[in-house]
Amino acid sequence: MQTAPDSPSAPLLAALEAAEGGALAPFGVCVAAGIDMPLLEVAPQHLFACMRALRDDAALSFEQLTYVTATDETPKEPRFRVVYHLYSFRHGWRLRVATSVTEEAPNVASLVPIYPGANWMEREVFDMFGITFGGHPELRRILMPEGYMYHPLRKEFPLEGIAPDRLYREWEKEAHAEGSRENGGAH
């Protein structure tokens, strides 16, 4: 961690360094200074416990989960990075937490028990990337229509989009039923 002592993130980096030997010790975290805010890398199996420690440790106390997103790092392995942004009201610190998951098992623990605000943001990540969140109370699509078969922010998805076909199948059925009614000519 090479950072100027007068950098605004210097106190946070010092606190994280101290926590690496204390509250965060079991999780094998890796801290970097980052460009805009410090970055903390953690393995997916330790994410849940690590987040709880970040929230509950008095020296850190990241009370708010600002944002959850993900990136598709194709062709790198592991493929996906799930990124969390934390904010500490007590200290005025911002922290980025990232964890990497593979394409074969795109699964991390849901943070809803720790941060209830993670609910919709994790649904969005699931919708856009197909990353599942174990223990999420209602993991279904939030932005794309129900039954859509693709995850639009994955790199292999075409830029111009793919029209959902489930809606059309339903409408096709409707049109078929309507056609037979019209042929009956009862109305």
């Binding site: 075409p158 111009e160 989009g161 793919i162 029209a163 076909d165 059309y168 049109a175 019209e182 000519g185």
Partner: peptide, 17 residues
């Protein structure tokens, strides 16, 4: 007139492209 005056759009399967 009986029924729809104009045909409903055909089912555009596959990519929008």
């Amino acid at each position: 007139s009986t029924g729809r005056q104009r045909p409903m759009p055909a089912n555009p399967r596959g990519p929008i492209l």
